[in-house]
């Protein structure tokens, strides 16, 4: 599904190297977790997979379904089946959530399905994720609480049905019940759509107790330094990241 080879990238405006050779592979139907401290490059990795114009790939390759996508425009990555739930979704003033979905769903649904039908499904999904219907009339992400943003970003996985969903820090800004609720519906969706691959990006292991990932990766200084199973997450939970940082230095 996703194959990343020796990926190096920098922040365009700062000319600062932020990924220092990432190797990483996610197969169809797998769930991966990428963990790391703030500034480790884990969110950047998600954005570079999506094609964020703030970053520039300086070396290496990203393959999606065996196609090199380094230079593919973001919208084409999206329509090929990559979805990124933003840690900090962008505000679009004056564009209602309803209008946003009216436009975006056109890219993922057949023309034969009338929009009112899609809209009804979306309202139901929002309800499941604890978002009231009248939110559809509010402007996209404007004045949304941190929790509302996270729920709506996560819920869109169920709207666009991507092949690969990257959920960036879905756990920050959500209280424990909110988080449980979001993860419950994501897990339920994955059960029903077992070909879906998911990457969870997180700082804390709190999220992991509700998941059963195939692999856990730890990122430090723009590199994946260690990969393993759930036991790795447990180790980080107990010891933090510093023992890993120390082991790299030596």
């Amino acid at each position: 599904m996703l194959k990343i080879r020796d990926l190096k990238a920098k922040v365009k405006s700062l000319d600062k190297q932020i990924l220092n050779g990432v190797d990483f592979e996610v197969k169809k139907g797998e769930i991966h977790c990428i963990m790391g401290k703030n500034g480790s490059g884990k969110s950047t990795l998600g954005h570079i997979i999506m094609g964020n114009p703030d970053y520039e790939i300086t070396d290496g390759q990203i393959y999606f379904e065996n196609e090199l996508i380094n230079d593919l425009p973001t919208n084409e990555r999206a329509t090929k089946g990559i979805y990124l739930a933003f840690q900090n979704p962008i505000e679009i003033p004056g564009v209602t959530l309803a209008n946003f979905f009216r436009y975006t769903t056109k890219k993922f649904y057949s023309e034969d399905i009338p929009y009112p039908k899609i809209r009804k499904q979306i309202v139901e999904l929002l309800g499941k994720f604890g978002i009231p219907e009248d939110t559809m009339r509010r402007y996209l992400n404007e004045g949304f609480s941190g929790g509302e943003r996270k729920r709506i970003e996560a819920m869109q996985v169920l709207v666009y049905k991507p092949k690969l969903a990257i959920l960036d820090e879905i756990d920050s800004g959500l209280d424990i019940d909110g988080l449980k609720n979001v993860v419950k519906y994501i897990n339920e969706y994955v059960e029903q759509n077992p070909d879906t691959s998911i990457i969870f990006i997180t700082h804390y292991s709190r999220l992991l107790q509700y998941l059963s990932p195939n692999m856990v990766h730890v990122m430090i200084n723009g590199k994946i330094v260690l990969s393993g199973d759930m036991s790795l997450a447990k180790e980080i939970d107990e010891k933090g990241y510093s023992w890993l940082e120390d082991s790299i230095k030596t």
Partner: peptide
């Protein structure tokens, strides 16, 4: 650019 990128990440 970030508004554009965000909307493009939803296929537009």
């Amino acid at each position: 650019e970030q508004q554009l990128y965000y909307l493009m990440s939803r296929g537009l």
